[in-house]
Design a protein around this nucleic acid. Sequence first.
DNA 1: GTCTATAAATCGATAGAC
DNA 2: GTCTATCGATTTATAGAC
Lengths: 200, 200
Amino acid sequence: MGRVTRKESHAQTRERLVETAHRLFLSDGYNATSLDKVAAEAGFSKGAVYSNFATKHELGLAVLDVLHLERAMSLAAAVRDAETAEERIEAFARWAEDNIGDVGWTALEVEFATSNRHVKGIDQALAGRRRELTAAVADLIEQQATDLGLTLPLPAEDAAVQLLSLGIGLGVQRAFDPELPVTSLVDLLRSLLDRSRPAE
Amino acid sequence: MGRVTRKESHAQTRERLVETAHRLFLSDGYNATSLDKVAAEAGFSKGAVYSNFATKHELGLAVLDVLHLERAMSLAAAVRDAETAEERIEAFARWAEDNIGDVGWTALEVEFATSNRHVKGIDQALAGRRRELTAAVADLIEQQATDLGLTLPLPAEDAAVQLLSLGIGLGVQRAFDPELPVTSLVDLLRSLLDRSRPAE
DNA sequence: GTCTATAAATCGATAGAC
DNA sequence: GTCTATCGATTTATAGAC
């Protein structure tokens, strides 16, 4: 009864495959990484991949989920301890420098999305993830505004779309031109803050 | 002497190949389009492709140049006849709706950039094009500000980076979720305008 | 459930005829 | 300069052994 060895080892295999794919996709790209290499580096063979994922796309989507969770958690953690508005902006600036500035992440998401945009079913999976992510960012923004006692100049959802889109655009361009600074993300946030009014 | 038939037919072949690649890359994607198909649909065989382009990447870059020229011209044309600030914003809004809303363009650029980001030399080619495009948009912004007698709240170059990045981010997300509206581009432009001051 | 072996298909790039 | 034919390398996905 104590040993659920069957299910557990299956889950462990799956997790190690996702971890390995996560690393390889980030460093070499999604298209350039073969399932053979993923399996080998994870210490398995390709059969293990196909017993855990029906297609390469499914593995890709699983990696995207890890990516989203990582970023959401790191962003929330980054602004958690900040108090004043200026402290929060500075915390966000540091997070942006470390995360948007870290080129691989956005490039992978975008490579996967655009390369498979005509694959049936993938677009819906990506659309669902996009909406979740946008809602999560919107929640975070709203929470920050409440904390600071501010009313935003536009709906939190719209602000989230702006910040996410700008981050994607910057990340994509930095993938081939890392000299492009990420400061405009902070500029956008600051302009949102400047145009906010005290909540009544 | 009047007939430069050799050079001309070569240039014509090249042009038709780029046109066909332009169309197929947009509809099916860069990775999913084989050079064989490009050649066949253009009425040539693959040999003609390789006598005009050393690699598939070169053809891809040629298509990106066409894309950039198209967008730059259509944007400049869209705002040309507008007079008041509000008219210009509305002209830009229509352009954004027709262009950023038209999913294929951004997705192609971004698919090419991210899929080949580790191919030696491609990143420099893309970085050069990015800077040209940013400079062109910055020029357009500066010209508009001068026309309206306004001083922008930030350097035109920074505003160009913001608008381009936001456009890329929106275009990418709309590639798999076309319900995402492009209104935040107009919001950003309007906020730039609202924060501008009359030039002395 | 995982491994080995292989199928099946694709595609970029090259060689040589015309 | 373009075409035909083909190479050569890869990769996704499957079939069957263990």
